Simulated scan of single mutants.
Amino acid sequence: MDLLGIHIPATSPVFLSFLTVHVLAGMTAVVVGAGAALVRHKGRGLHTRFGGMYFGSICVVFATATAMAAMRPREDYHLFLIGAVAFAAALTGRTARRRHWSGDMAHIVGMGGSYVAMLTAFYVDNGPQLPLWDRLPTLAYWLLPAAVGAPLTWRAVRRAQRLRGPATASDRGPQAA
């Protein structure tokens, strides 16, 4: 079945229900994740609200990806694995903030890595059907999100370090004896 030029891999009403929720949660995660990253002030307020909505959206994306992969394991197991990485990275980023881990690196890298994994899954699954992306080799779907996201995440880490001031010994981790 095709919908707006996108191939829908199954027509089962249960699969389509999960897919609908998955797509809506994925679109929400893209928008609020970008919003959380782009908000200038990273303290409580808009950044925290967007971050909470992003985490909730990623939870739904992972849950629905898990259900769809269970229905079509041979076709979707790789998407389940990428979803697990996105969820685990977001959980790490959220835990780092909630448990007040020293520094900002775990939070930024966790959330940034989650966003990159989510986009990777999208392009791996849909790239061959998207204008311009359909001209790229398959490897590009796997690598381009990280090629763009990794430098942006690193930049965010460096900015947070500059704003925080000089690192303390505990920020650098265990010291060699």
Rank of each mutant, 00 (worst) to 15 (best):
M1K: 11
D2A: 00
L3A: 01
L4N: 13
P9M: 10
S12A: 06
P13Y: 10
V14S: 14
F15S: 09
L19D: 09
T20K: 13
V21E: 06
V21I: 13
L24F: 12
A29F: 07
V31R: 09
V32A: 09
A34P: 11
G35A: 07
A37H: 00
R40M: 13
G43A: 12
G43V: 03
G43L: 08
L46S: 13
R49D: 12
F50A: 15
F50I: 00
G51N: 13
V60G: 07
V60H: 02
A63I: 00
T64I: 00
A65S: 11
A65W: 09
A65N: 06
A67F: 08
M71G: 08
G83S: 01
A84T: 00
A86F: 07
A89Y: 11
T95V: 15
R98Q: 09
H100D: 15
W101L: 02
M105Y: 08
G112W: 03
S114I: 03
S114N: 05
Y115T: 10
V116G: 04
M118N: 07
L119R: 01
D125Q: 10
P128D: 14
D134N: 15
L136N: 11
L136R: 05
L139S: 15
W142G: 08
L144G: 00
P145A: 03
V148R: 07
G149N: 02
A150T: 10
A150S: 05
W154M: 14
R155E: 00
A160N: 07
P166T: 14
T168F: 03
S170D: 15
R172Q: 03
P174G: 11
P174C: 10
P174N: 12
Q175L: 13
A177H: 15
A177I: 06
